[in-house]
Design a protein around this nucleic acid. Structure first.
Lengths: 249, 249
DNA sequence: CGGCGCGTTGATTACTGTCAAACGGTGTGG
DNA sequence: CCACACCGTTTGACAGTAATCAACGCGCCG
């Protein structure tokens, strides 16, 4: 549902986090952005269609949903608030997946031509956006390996650890507690297991006292123990950006 | 083994394929590149160490090898000649994986500062390189989903289809025949199965007349049938680049 | 009340890993 | 030349993990 156009709030925040300097950031303060909200399961960006805007997630969770070759579907990533979800559509003609809302979400859409102008005009901005897409790619590589090497309880625990970590970064998780819009069926799509198997793996995790997940809330009694259980390392998720491009163009 | 420094051959080729115009391409003709060859299993780029160059694969195959959390290892991508293997090290401080030679390989290394100068000076070049990293990311997403949803025979067949397709693009596969430096154990690392299971899946594929793989050579009697078997679609691998950035800066 | 989404359970089957061993080719040293 | 070791491949038997099929319970909402 479209809820109007207003100056982008998240783009300046995003650039600030990326270490972009004041001058370039001032140029990004008055960027008009279309805002929209989405209900559970609604498609935020459809892969089949060439988009003319890129979107930032403001609230809620979203997944990158792919059609799998033999007819099923799979998820290649989870997006949290603050993520620039389809920056790649700026340069690639086709998208291989949909971006789908999990629970209620809000997103803002910035026209490609605006982003291109910013990139052309500001060296720091273009490298910051490029670096963001590289961080995404790095996360994808890690997921590929995890999907190949971990069994259900560890894999699920790892997804939860990753969510907790990334949500905490943007103030949406505290003391191991966070809202969990994903259902067990969603978790199955993310991890590639069946919903039934996810259910049984979760019972194992609960039984071991590693996590509580009831309704739409997750509580991790001992984050460190859960991280040890599944081999989660912050360094796998948090990739630092090189600092050579801080010079303004 | 270091085999000297000479003007980069592949960078101009690479830019030409990316649709970069003559003016920008001329600037990239005299780029000095260090050349080196590697034996089977040698590390071409070590993730732990911050590199000061980015490398292109000239000959042979290489894999992105990760340490898996519980001690094993996994592979997140296969690189073929012509691939810019660690362009991401240009902007990210840390790399989460090694790039490892499979069989004998040759690579050329271009200093980061040279690449940065080219990117700063030429709009087309910076967008072409950015797009290349986005294509990588797209391939990673597809692999994540495949790793989660396919069983061994299909998954292995898919990797082989992808290799055949990408090698054919650079003239290294013809009529379904190509050199295969990967061993069955390597294929196990790539797909996340055990070598024994890979062996059995291959017997199944051979029995169905879908592929022949003996020694270091693969022959696909009927590429279309193999593609149908594993759901391989060219569109999953070949992502087109948007054409808006053809304008020179 | 009845339907639906979500979580749960049990029984059964299919897929994959593990352990142990053997085979064939290749290169090396005696 | 042969013995030997090594690597990649192959085989068999068995154990563990996950998918499938078929229900059932529970809460929410029309």
């Amino acid at each position: 549902m479209n809820v109007g156009t207003q100056p982008s709030q998240f783009l300046p925040l995003f650039l600030a986090r990326a270490g972009v300097g004041d001058a370039a950031r001032r140029a990004a303060t008055a960027i008009p952005a279309r805002r929209a909200t989405f209900r559970d399961g609604e498609v935020i960006v459809r892969g089949a269609k060439r988009p003319t805007e890129s979107c930032l997630l403001l609230r809620g969770l979203a997944v990158r949903r792919h059609e799998a070759p033999r007819g099923g579907s799979g998820v290649s990533a989870i997006c949290v608030p603050g993520d620039f979800m389809d920056l790649h559509s700026l340069l690639l003609e086709t998208l291989e997946h949909d971006i789908v809302s999990i629970g209620g979400t809000a997103a803002e859409f910035i026209p490609h031509e605006t982003l291109v102008s910013l990139c052309d005009a500001h060296r720091q901005i273009r490298y910051a956006l490029w670096a963001e897409t590289l961080r995404d790619a790095s996360a994808h590589r890690v997921w590929t390996v995890l999907a190949g090497t971990m069994r259900a309880p560890e894999r699920i625990a790892h997804v939860i650890c990753e969510l907790e970590y990334r949500l905490a970064l943007v103030g949406l998780a505290e003391a191991g507690n966070f809202a969990m819009p994903l259902t067990q069926a969603d978790m199955a799509e993310v991890t590639g297991f069946t919903a039934i198997h996810v259910n049984r793996a979760l019972q194992e995790l609960r039984g071991a006292g590693l996590l509580e997940w009831q309704g739409r809330t997750v509580h991790l009694p001992d984050v460190d123990r859960l991280r040890a259980f599944c081999g989660f390392e912050v360094s796998h998720v948090a990739r630092k950006t090189a600092k050579w491009f801080t010079k303004e163009s």
